[in-house]
Nucleic acid binder design. Structure first.
Lengths: 214, 214
DNA sequence: CTGCGTATATTCGTCTACGAATAACGGAGG
DNA sequence: CCTCCGTTATTCGTAGACGAATATACGCAG
């Protein structure tokens, strides 16, 4: 088990905000949200409490005390520990130094491209091109806007995300154009596969619509 | 719940191989492996049996029968259903048409860059540059080798992965160079933050080393 | 002052991922 | 002929992710 004690990246965000100052759980959520860290990273707030508990269990954060504001339920305040600072730095270092891991769903999509007709593929890729262009434009304008208030070092992730977005856009556009122009080399074979249908579906058989038998 | 009944991308790979011909579970693993689909996609084989069960439960695949080879344990043969073909195409379509989702760990790493010193960051980014360059070279040569036996349409994912890898390499190299050259605008503020230490760590206190109290 | 929408704050139960363990067979080498 | 080992093939337990539900406070429109 060379793996991280707490693997959820939300845990990294928690360590990062607690490095600034102690706070309670809901506040962590607010701060992380307000920093826009949830834009590129898809944060599942349902996991926050589990993650905080796990960080505490492993000694990366600790309870400072409780705070009570009026009749609201009492809130537990957490602080980062020395071990937590170490974990934060080590984790960040690993994420920065080691490539790998990047699970891009488009890779999965492309790997089953032959299951679709060339025409469908052209259409779908076109839709992605549009969506990607819009997304890139959004990020770009957001970045320009933020750059007036926030130092660049806090916007680095967005710059990176934008660069990747631009690269993806260029590549996908290229593939779609190549398919649309008919210059893609394997179109004939692809169509042949399509015409053959799905050979795995020998006996159509009665497919049980809802939940099969136990 | 507009989400996919079976969310694990390994399920997509299973549907894809079953679309070719019916087979039993371990064979799916071999075929997927031999296609090299496990190179870019990090497949966890421990999940295969769960995923196949779930696909069957939702009627996307169905049992054809069993095969017995000597005294080996009997193997259950699965085929894809019509619903399964629909799911495969719909899933692929969604993956191709809709961007989003791409959870790149580097984004997370960059978002906590200020937690590290500039010098450390330069070093780590340099290491990533090296690793990335090597990885890109590997993929490139593998691609050249495969292109002699395999039609290009089966290598599209690798072309895409390579393009993203190249883009990432260029961007990271750019950032590292900028930091190393000292032309990055916020270096002064960054160092100030570093010097301030971790303010969240007010009271170092006795940090309970192993598993905290219940 | 009374009801309603919104923000605050947390709990719980279900479902899933997947590491690790298990076990039989085939063949290579002594 | 034995035994070791790599491949085939599958099961199971546990930790964890996260959707959905819950509950209370606050501010403001009527």
């Amino acid at each position: 088990m060379a793996a991280r004690k707490v693997g959820n990246l939300l845990g990294l965000a928690v360590l990062a905000v607690l490095a600034e100052r102690p706070m309670h759980r809901y506040e962590m959520a607010s701060v992380i949200r307000s920093r826009g860290k949830d834009r590129q990273l898809a944060v599942k707030w349902g996991s926050l409490y589990t993650v905080v508990d796990n960080l505490a269990r492993h000694g990366f954060i600790a309870v400072v005390g409780t705070d009570r504001d009026g009749a609201r339920p009492e809130r537990t305040i957490y602080r980062i520990t020395e071990a937590g600072v170490g974990e934060l730095q080590d984790w960040a270092a690993q994420l920065l130094a080691e490539p790998g891991g990047a699970a891009d769903p488009l890779v999965a999509g492309l790997s089953v491209l032959p299951a679709l007709s060339p025409e469908t593929a052209i259409d779908l890729l076109g839709r992605r091109v549009d969506a990607l262009a819009e997304q890139a434009a959004d990020v770009r304008s957001q970045l320009v806007r933020d750059a007036q208030h926030v130092p660049r070092m806090f916007l680095i992730e967005d710059e990176y995300a934008l660069a990747q977005l631009d690269a993806q856009l260029a590549w996908v556009r290229g593939l779609r154009d190549e398919l649309a122009a008919g210059t893609f080399p394997d179109l004939a074979e692809w169509r042949r596969l399509q015409a053959a249908g799905m050979p795995g579906l020998d006996a159509p058989g009665p497919h049980d619509d809802e939940e099969a038998q136990p």
